[in-house]
Amino acid sequence: MKVMIRKTATGHSAYVAKKDLEELIVEMENPALWGGKVTLANGWQLELPAMAADTPLPITVEARKL
């Protein structure tokens, strides 16, 4: 699914347009965010693609819901 990742004042957030859902990312498998699992505030887990740590945000990526 397409997910937009952006930086907020409190960390990172994910927006899933198909579900009209925006949630804070509360847990990251990798400190650089990319190439691992993230957990959203509502409990969803997404697998993000591997990208460079300095990838500019906001960005829309293809993520997989676990």
Score class of each variant (00 low, 15 high):
Thr10Leu: 13
Glu47Leu: 14
Ala14Asp: 01
Leu66Pro: 06
Tyr15Leu: 11
Lys19Trp: 15
Glu27Val: 09
Met28Ile: 08
Ala52Gly: 09
Ala17Ile: 15
Met1Gly: 03
Ala52Thr: 08
Gly35Phe: 05
Pro31Arg: 08
Thr8Glu: 06
Val26His: 04
Leu46Phe: 13
Thr8Pro: 00
Pro49Lys: 02
Lys7Ile: 08
Arg6Pro: 01
Ala41Gln: 08
Thr10Gly: 12
Pro31Asn: 11
Gly11Met: 02
Val26Pro: 00
Ile59Phe: 09
Ala14Ser: 02
Thr60Ala: 07
Gly35Asp: 06
Gln45Pro: 00
Val38Pro: 01
Glu47Pro: 00
Gln45Lys: 11
Ala53Pro: 13
Lys37Trp: 15
Pro56Val: 11
Glu47Ser: 10
Ala63Ile: 08
Glu22Ser: 09
Trp44Met: 09
Lys2Ala: 11
Ala17Thr: 11
Ala41Thr: 06
Gly36His: 04
Thr39Trp: 11
Asn42Glu: 02
Glu62Ser: 11
Val61Phe: 06
Leu21Cys: 14
Asp54Arg: 04
Glu29Ile: 04
Ile59Val: 13
Ile5Gln: 00
Asn42Val: 02
Leu40Thr: 00
Ala14Val: 15
Thr10Asn: 13
Val38Glu: 02
Pro58Phe: 06
Glu23His: 12
Glu23Met: 14
Val38Gln: 00
Lys19Asn: 15
Ala63Asn: 01
Arg64Pro: 05
Asn42Trp: 05
Gly11Val: 03
Val61Trp: 00
Ile59Asn: 03
Val61Asn: 01
Ala14Leu: 14
Ile25Glu: 00
Leu46Glu: 00
Asn30Pro: 03
Glu22Val: 09
Asn30Asp: 07
Glu47Ile: 14
Val61Cys: 04
Leu21Ala: 09
Glu62Trp: 15
Pro31Ile: 10
Asn42Ile: 04
Glu29Met: 06
Ala63Pro: 04
His12Glu: 03
His12Trp: 15
Gln45Tyr: 08
His12Lys: 05
Met4His: 08
Ile59Met: 09
Thr39Phe: 07
Ala17Asn: 09
Tyr15Pro: 01
Lys37Pro: 05
Val16Ser: 06
Ala41Arg: 07
Gly43Ala: 04
Leu48Thr: 01
Ala32Val: 10
His12Gly: 02
Pro49Phe: 06
Leu33Pro: 03
Met1Ile: 14
Ala9Tyr: 08
Trp34His: 02
Glu27Gly: 10
Val38His: 01
Val26Trp: 05
Met51Lys: 06
Tyr15Gln: 09
Ala50Val: 12
Arg6Gln: 10
Lys18Ile: 15
Ala14Asn: 02
Trp44Asp: 06
Thr8Asn: 09
Lys65Ser: 12
Ala17Arg: 08
Lys7Asn: 06
Val61Arg: 00
Leu48Asp: 01
Val38Arg: 00
Thr8Ala: 08
Thr55Gly: 04
His12Ile: 13
Glu29Ala: 08
Asn42Gln: 01
Leu24Gln: 13
Glu29Ser: 09
Thr8Cys: 09
Pro49Glu: 05
Val38Cys: 02
Thr60Arg: 04
Asn42Ala: 01
Met1Cys: 15
Leu48Tyr: 01
Ile25Tyr: 01
Ile25Thr: 00
Met51Asn: 04
Arg6Ser: 14
Pro58Val: 04
Gly36Ile: 06
Glu29Leu: 05
Met1Pro: 03
Tyr15Glu: 06
Asp20Phe: 12
Lys19Asp: 15
Met28Asp: 00
Ala50Pro: 14
Glu29Cys: 06
Glu22Lys: 05
Ile25Gln: 00
Trp34Gly: 02
Leu46Ser: 01
Leu46Met: 08
Leu57Gly: 02
Val16Thr: 04
Glu27Lys: 11
Thr60Gly: 04
Gly11Lys: 02
Ile59Gln: 10
Lys65Glu: 11
Val26Cys: 09
Asp20Pro: 04
Asp54Lys: 06
Leu57His: 02
Leu21Ile: 14
Val61Gly: 03
Val61Glu: 01
Ala52Gln: 08
Leu21Pro: 02
Tyr15His: 09
Glu27Gln: 12
Thr55Phe: 03
Asn30Thr: 09
Met1Asn: 05
Glu22Ala: 08
Thr39Met: 09
Trp34Phe: 10
Ala53Ile: 11
Pro58Trp: 07
Glu22Tyr: 11
Lys18Ala: 15
Gly35Val: 02
Met28Lys: 11
Lys37Ile: 14
Gln45Ser: 10
Ser13Ala: 12
Ala17Pro: 14
Leu33Ile: 09
Arg64Ser: 08
Thr55His: 04
Ile5Tyr: 01
Tyr15Asn: 06
Ala32Cys: 11
Thr55Glu: 01
Ile5His: 00
Ala50Glu: 12
Pro31Ser: 09
Gln45Asn: 07
Ala14Glu: 01
Leu46Gln: 01
Pro31Leu: 09
Pro56Glu: 12
Lys37Thr: 13
Val3Arg: 00
Glu62Tyr: 14
